[in-house]
Design a protein around this nucleic acid. Structure first.
Length: 261
DNA sequence: ATGGCCTGTTACACAGGA
């Protein structure tokens, strides 16, 4: 079984590239972020052979899970697990969708960017991460296979940044963001890419500006976390840099996890 | 040192991204 995650930065602009990528990489599950489209306009018909679970909005954010099998369950946002009262306004931005497929809980997230350390959006990012921690705490169970895929907008360690010096005040690398990420690992989730590779220079996002991709000036901010029962089933996890080199690409590359299921 | 680019909007600049 193969599960992939890809921030496509507009599904309408990237539709042909997603189709092209799926033709070569017929993964069982594809988690998409930044679809930037309302559900009525999501191009479901352009993905034959895949079921689309979608949670979108106009212009911003938006997540979707494409899967060969029809999910047994689908939910959107934090509220179905945490209740509307504790979630407040956090479900207004469409950043979380959750399906169950083949007994596997698959949660697709688009963590807020945070703009800059200390900004209002940064506070929102940390609050969103705290709520995600509550959500996953309620889901995680010693015998339940859970996979949390998406754009985390956090580089977990200095190994995950091309130039890590002086990044403590940089968005995606600040200590509070990294502490938040560690707290997910403390729930016995593991970063599946790091189970397979300790190499530096392995990135999933490169700025459109300044020839960043050509120079491999990137960040590893898209991750697939797995719960403990999935650990022995991991066959491989890799980043597919190819679509980042295509014409008019997304600024993110897909990450693929292969499980022995 | 800074910013460099890209997407969507009802736009003809701006917000947001990271």
């Amino acid at each position: 079984m193969q599960i992939a995650t890809w921030n496509v930065n507009s599904i309408r602009t990237r539709l042909a590239q997603i189709q092209q990528w799926l033709a070569k990489n017929p993964v069982d599950v594809l988690c998409l972020q930044e679809t930037k489209v309302v559900d009525e306009q999501f191009p479901q018909a352009h993905f034959p052979g895949y079921h689309c679970a979608i949670a979108g909005q106009k212009s911003y954010n938006g997540v979707a899970i494409l899967s060969k099998q029809v999910p047994a369950r689908t939910s959107r946002g934090f509220a179905p697990i945490l209740g509307g009262e504790s979630v407040g306004d956090l479900d207004e931005q469409k950043r979380l969708i959750h399906v169950q497929i083949q007994g596997l809980e698959i949660i697709n997230i688009y963590v807020p960017n945070g703009q800059s350390v200390g900004s209002e959006k940064y506070a929102y990012k940390l609050r969103w991460l705290t709520t995600l921690h509550q959500y996953l705490s309620a889901i995680v169970h010693p015998e339940r296979p859970v996979c949390v895929c998406g754009d985390w907008n956090i580089a977990p360690t200095d190994l995950d940044i091309y130039d890590p010096a002086d990044k403590a005040e940089h968005i995606m690398a600040s200590p509070p963001e990294r502490t938040a990420f560690q707290q997910f690992l403390d729930l016995h989730f593991q970063d599946s890419f790091r189970l397979c590779s300790q190499a530096a220079g392995q990135f999933t996002w490169w700025d459109y500006r300044a020839g960043s991709f050509r120079r491999n000036h990137g960040w590893r901010i898209d991750h697939i976390l797995i719960s403990a029962p999935l650990r022995p089933l991991v066959k491989n996890c890799w980043i597919d840099r190819e679509p980042r080199g295509w014409q008019q690409p997304s600024d993110h590359a897909p990450v693929v996890l292969e499980l022995d299921i």
